[in-house]
């Protein structure tokens, strides 16, 4: 049996969109990008895809990577990116009932899908999603699936029935070990995700995602109710009024800034 890696990815609003171009939809309580800005695969999830592909590179012919995503609708050319990077299969959990789920419900949907997928060795996720910045779903998944969970990995190595993970921790690094199956979240310190090559893009075009709806997962509808109520989404008002230090030239401005900081007793 090849090593089976499941990577959970999320389609998100492009975080590079300038803040000034974003608006809040007060009804749906979420941020909306201009129509001409396409969504992206969450950046940390691409790091997780890269971590999976590195394991696959190290064990040629012995790794299968299934990509899993949950949502109401998908931009197919976006969500297929992990396939074009080299993943094997894409399973979309797509249902109107999956719109705007909170972390609690999302973890339950993903856990049900992972159980339905059958045997697996590793679940990889990005450390957090750039929209809601929760970092909750992976730990939730680990609890629901009864897996050891390791977060913020910069290096993932699979040895015999075990995984060795280098984590980014404040002030240094930490190496931990867990038995498989395990859940691991990946951070950008792992390194740049690879760009899809032409062969990968062609292969991805031919692959059709498997689509499962809520009914296919046998989910208790009560689990789709939010555990956290989102009351309001708002953009905080900026109150600070900057004092611009002028000068004859750039060097003079620098000097005057130092004097100003002394006057304000800051240095």
């Amino acid at each position: 049996m090849p090593l089976h890696i499941i990577v959970c990815v999320k389609q998100v609003l492009d975080p590079e969109t300038p803040a000034s171009a974003l608006r809040i939809d007060p009804q749906l309580r979420r941020m909306v990008a201009p129509a001409n800005v396409p969504p992206v695969v969450n950046g940390f999830d691409e790091n997780a895809v890269e971590a999976a592909l590195r394991i696959k590179d190290a064990r040629p012919g012995d790794v299968k990577i299934t990509v899993l995503s949950c949502g109401k609708s998908f931009a197919m050319e976006v969500i297929k990116k992990p396939l074009s990077m080299g993943c094997d299969e894409l399973v979309l959990l797509q249902d109107n009932a999956f719109d705007n789920l909170d972390a609690f419900a999302t973890a339950h949907v993903l856990a049900a899908a992972i159980k339905k997928l059958g045997a697996f060795d590793i679940v990889l996720c990005g450390r957090q999603a750039s929209d809601w910045d929760q970092a909750q779903v992976p730990q939730g998944l680990a609890q629901l699936l009864g897996l050891p969970g390791v977060t913020i990995a910069k290096k993932v190595e699979v040895t015999d029935k075990k995984v060795r993970v280098e984590r980014v921790v404040p002030g240094g690094r930490e190496v931990v070990e867990a038995s498989l199956p395990a859940l691991i979240t990946v951070t950008n310190e792992l390194g740049q995700p690879r760009y899809p090559n032409l062969r990968g893009i062609m292969a991805a075009t031919r692959k059709q995602p498997v689509v499962w709806k809520a009914g296919d997962l046998g989910l208790d509808p009560a689990l789709l109710q939010p555990a956290v109520e989102l009351q309001e989404l708002f953009i905080p008002v900026q109150e600070k009024n900057v004092e611009i230090i002028e000068g004859e030239d750039d060097a003079d401005k620098g000097r005057k800034l130092a004097l100003k900081l002394r006057e304000a007793k800051l240095i």
Binding site: Q238, K240, V242, E243, I244, I245, G247, D249, D250, A251, D252, K253, G254, R255, L257, A258, L259, K260, L261, A264, I267
Partner: peptide, 22 residues
């Protein structure tokens, strides 16, 4: 928008003079 004091300048010129004065 977040700063209390600001200098609109090329850091290559402003920073050495700032550091020297500090």
């Amino acid at each position: 928008k977040e700063a209390r004091f600001g200098v609109v300048a090329d850091w290559k010129k402003a920073l050495p003079a700032f550091a020297e004065t500090v």
